[in-house]
């Protein structure tokens, strides 16, 4: 009996020690995580989904004075604006129903078609180059100034940009604006209506440049 008692004592002692080592030393490093390991991610996902629907939910359902649950723990925020929804990529603003006439007047059918590269896009590229060079020059100028002259780091003024060439104005007749997609006869007709003198054997590109030049002058 003493032998059996000692045997069980040793079994218990070794089991206890093994369990403590296994759980408090080995498993502690393997499967123990911060208290909010699951909750933090789940709460974040929940907030994203609820905010996109303009909802917020309290942690506990409200009760009336008698302790009865009222079922009210969902609060609906004022509806998000069209701009906010567009920023959140929930809607495509250009085709959103309920827009004002001004908002709707933007795109027309031809703008929704696949764009063909326009030779006059090179104007935009030139403008970008000008902008970058001005910014670099401004930075160099600031860096060259002694610190005493730099009092409060004011926000740099945006460099004076040359006016972007206006896109060819829409013709009052409602016809399409001149572009390389039109044939030469159409371009000649447009130029003649604008009073532009065309050189002999002028190409489509030359005619188009003259038309745009005339428009810019206007």
């Amino acid at each position: 009996m003493v032998h059996e008692t000692l045997r069980y004592f040793l079994i218990a002692f070794v089991s206890s020690a093994a369990l403590i080592v296994l759980s408090k030393i080995i498993l502690q490093f393997l499967i123990r995580r911060p208290a909010d390991y699951y909750n933090a991610a789940e709460l974040y996902q929940e907030e994203l989904m609820l905010n996109s629907a303009g909802l917020s939910i309290n942690d506990e359902m409200e009760t009336n004075p008698e302790g009865e649950l009222t079922g009210e723990n969902i609060h609906v925020d004022p509806k998000i604006s069209v701009e906010q929804a567009a920023e959140m990529h929930l809607i495509d603003k250009e085709i959103m129903p309920g827009l004002t006439a001004e908002e709707k007047s933007g795109p027309e059918a031809e703008d929704l078609l696949p764009e063909v590269p326009d030779e006059h896009d090179e104007h935009k590229e030139n403008l970008e180059d000008i902008r970058k060079s001005l910014e670099e020059a401004y930075k160099q100028q600031i860096e060259s100034l002694p610190e005493a002259e730099l009092e409060v780091p004011a926000e740099p003024e945006e460099p004076q940009m040359p006016a972007e060439p206006e896109k060819p104005a829409r013709r009052k007749t409602g016809k399409r604006k001149p572009s390389m997609r039109m044939n030469k006869a159409e371009l000649i007709e447009i130029a003649e209506s604008m009073g532009i003198e065309l050189p002999d054997k002028a190409t489509k590109k030359v005619i188009l440049d003259l038309i745009y030049e005339n428009m810019n002058e206007d």
Binding site: F9, I20, K24, P34
Partner: peptide, 30 residues
Amino acid sequence: LEYIAIFAGGSIPFFLYLKKMKPHDEITID
């Protein structure tokens, strides 16, 4: 006697390792 031995044998490591037996504010992933 078996169960008294189990009680005694199982308790000794607990009290020897008492300071470390207090849990931490963490969860166990399962």
